[in-house]
């Protein structure tokens, strides 16, 4: 489904500020897999996600989705294959547009658009039905501006939006990190439902080891731009956070993981 081959990403190449964010990642994800990605700050997990979405082009390596080489495709071109939910709840929607207008944008994701009215009875009906499942009463506020909603509400709508068009891949970039614990749990639950219903192949970056093990079918950990371990199936089923730390230590020849936020999350 998704195949990354020897991806290297270097920022500010050839200058004193040169940063090698990703140093040779090869990863193959089959259809229907839900991969959780963990790693400390600067480990390259966000860069990896941005490389998949097309915001960052790799300096070396290739990306194929299905059988198509998309390495040089722009973000807009990849939108018909990839849906995305951002870490910042404000980034995934337009606050000056209404709820229904935001959802209409996602409704036409990757489609040919024309000069017909963007909103009609058909899609409004779908938006209402989708919003109703959140149980937040948003189905009666279709014409409210997105900016009036809380971060959690906006994130929940972003998730609904990602499923309005049949995308193949869902990218989640620490999308619960900016939310309070209760809302985060609600959004995470919704995420799993949507992935399940639409049989999506998903990649979720998270800061929390706990979360990384709780959901999904496979977990990979990045460190200094490389994959340090990759667990799935039975091997992953019984793992705890402590086991993950041991696994990290073993793979890094005794180096201790020093990022507290990873352990506390």
């Amino acid at each position: 489904m998704i195949c990354l081959e020897d991806i290297h990403v270097t920022f500010n190449e050839g200058t004193p500020l040169e940063t090698r964010a990703v140093r040779g990642i090869s990863l193959s994800i089959s259809k229907g897999e839900f991969v959780t990605v963990i790693g400390s700050n600067g480990s390259g997990k966000s860069t990896l996600l941005n490389t998949l979405s097309g915001e960052v082009f790799p300096s070396y390596g290739s990306i194929t989705i299905g059988d198509i080489d998309v390495t040089r495709w722009s973000v807009a071109q990849r939108a018909k294959l990839i849906a995305r939910v951002f870490q910042d709840p404000l980034a995934g929607s337009c606050e000056n547009l209404t709820i229904e207008e935001n959802m209409a944008l996602a409704w036409y994701r990757g489609q040919k658009t024309g000069f017909a009215a963007a909103l009609n009875d058909t899609n409004r009906e779908v938006f209402k039905k989708q919003l109703a499942r959140l149980g937040l009463g948003l189905e009666n506020r279709l014409r409210d501006k997105m900016g009036l909603l809380s971060g959690g509400q906006r994130q929940a709508i972003s998730l609904l939006m990602s499923a309005l068009q049949p995308a193949k891949i869902l990218l989640l970039d620490e999308h619960t990190a900016a939310l309070d614990p209760k809302t985060a749990a609600f959004v995470l639950d919704l995420t799993c439902q949507i992935i399940d219903e639409n049989k999506l192949t998903a990649l979720m970056v998270t800061h929390s080891m706990q979360q990384a093990l709780e959901v999904g079918t496979r977990t990979i950990m990045l460190h200094e731009g490389k994959i340090v371990f990759d667990v799935q199936g039975e091997e992953r089923a019984g793992l705890t956070v402590v086991d993950l730390l041991d696994l990290f230590k073993k793979n890094q020849e005794g180096e201790e993981l020093s990022d507290d936020s990873l352990l506390l999350g």
Binding site: S93, R109, T113, A118, L119
Partner: peptide, 26 residues
Amino acid sequence: KFLNSQKGLAMRATGANARMASAQGI
């Protein structure tokens, strides 16, 4: 008519949040 059309909405999204707009294929 234009601003409420599919293309018009895409244009408004471009001004309001360009990053989100391209993620929606605009």
